[in-house]
Deep mutational scan, measured.
Amino acid sequence: NITNLCPFDEVFNATRFASVYAWNRKRISNCVADYSVLYNFAPFFAFKCYGVSPTKLNDLCFTNVYADSFVIRGNEVSQIAPGQTGNIADYNYKLPDDFTGCVIAWNSNKLDSKVGGNYNYLYRLFRKSNLKPFERDISTEIYQAGNKPCNGVAGFNCYFPLRSYGFRPTYGVGHQPYRVVVLSFELLHAPATVCGPKKST
């Protein structure tokens, strides 16, 4: 009989979020998941679920829940969905086509923008091939755009693969920082350890 609540607040209220190319993952297990707390949290810009209804989450049990978190621009949030393409979905964070879970995003301009620009948040701009679902690539190898080998030196046709967002408070909404948490639900042939409040007695 599990009684402790799942530590969703640790994920959602973290002081610093990860850059999207180096997205953070927390495994959540052996706890009671009260999703209504999240669902009623006012400032969400997006709360979209795939393969599961957000209002039914509290009735369900899962083997594991993974909480992935990172920061992207407002106009990139739409790429955090199954079957998407674009710089983020291709080179930074890719969801599987059969994704079961929820994508939760909110504007973090007050936290993550600075006058003069916040350059701490990076994304991958160049990559030889697209990421596989949930693949994480933190390499900083110089990207070779031409035929000539770069030998690890940036220059003509040789690019550092990461780019900084440089968030400023005055940017338009599409270019403002958004914090994103992706909850993915794993249902294995194993005992369920993460259940909603109704199922955990």
Rank of each mutant, 00 (worst) to 15 (best):
N1V: 06
T3R: 03
N4A: 09
L5V: 06
L5A: 09
L5G: 01
L5S: 12
P7I: 08
D9H: 08
D9T: 02
D9W: 09
E10T: 04
E10R: 02
T15H: 02
A18Q: 13
N24K: 08
N24V: 00
K26I: 14
K26A: 00
R27P: 07
R27H: 11
S29C: 02
V32E: 09
A33S: 11
Y35P: 07
V37N: 01
V37G: 10
V37A: 15
V37I: 04
L38I: 14
L38F: 10
Y39S: 02
N40M: 13
F41C: 02
A42K: 03
F44W: 06
F45Y: 09
F45I: 10
F45H: 12
F45P: 00
A46I: 11
F47W: 04
Y50W: 02
G51R: 06
T55L: 08
T55H: 14
K56T: 13
D59E: 04
D59M: 11
T63N: 07
V65M: 02
V65F: 02
V71I: 01
R73C: 07
N75C: 03
N75R: 11
S78M: 08
Q79E: 11
G83K: 04
Q84T: 08
Q84S: 02
T85C: 06
N87K: 12
N87P: 04
D90Q: 02
D90A: 10
D97T: 06
D98P: 04
D98K: 02
T100N: 02
T100H: 01
W106Y: 11
N107S: 02
N107E: 01
S108A: 08
K110F: 10
L111K: 01
L111E: 10
S113A: 06
K114S: 00
K114R: 14
V115R: 00
V115M: 03
V115P: 00
V115I: 10
G116K: 00
G116N: 10
G116I: 00
G117K: 00
Y119V: 12
Y119Q: 05
L122Y: 10
L122T: 02
Y123F: 12
Y123Q: 05
Y123E: 00
L125Q: 14
F126H: 14
F126V: 06
F126A: 04
R127K: 09
K128F: 08
K128L: 12
S129V: 04
S129W: 14
S129T: 06
N130G: 14
K132S: 03
K132Y: 01
P133A: 04
F134Q: 06
E135D: 10
E135G: 09
I138V: 01
I138A: 15
S139C: 01
T140M: 06
E141N: 09
Y143A: 13
K148H: 04
P149A: 15
G152P: 07
G152F: 02
F156Y: 15
Y159H: 07
P161T: 01
R163C: 12
R163A: 12
G166Y: 12
G166S: 12
P169A: 01
P169N: 00
P169K: 00
V173P: 13
G174V: 05
G174E: 09
G174Y: 10
H175E: 15
H175Q: 11
Y178L: 03
Y178I: 14
S184N: 06
F185Y: 07
F185M: 12
E186N: 05
L187R: 07
L188M: 15
L188Q: 10
L188W: 11
L188I: 08
H189F: 06
H189V: 07
H189K: 10
P191E: 06
A192T: 12
T193V: 07
V194Q: 12
V194G: 04
G196R: 15
P197H: 11
P197R: 12
P197C: 11
K198R: 10
K199F: 10
K199C: 12
K199L: 01
T201D: 09
T201A: 10
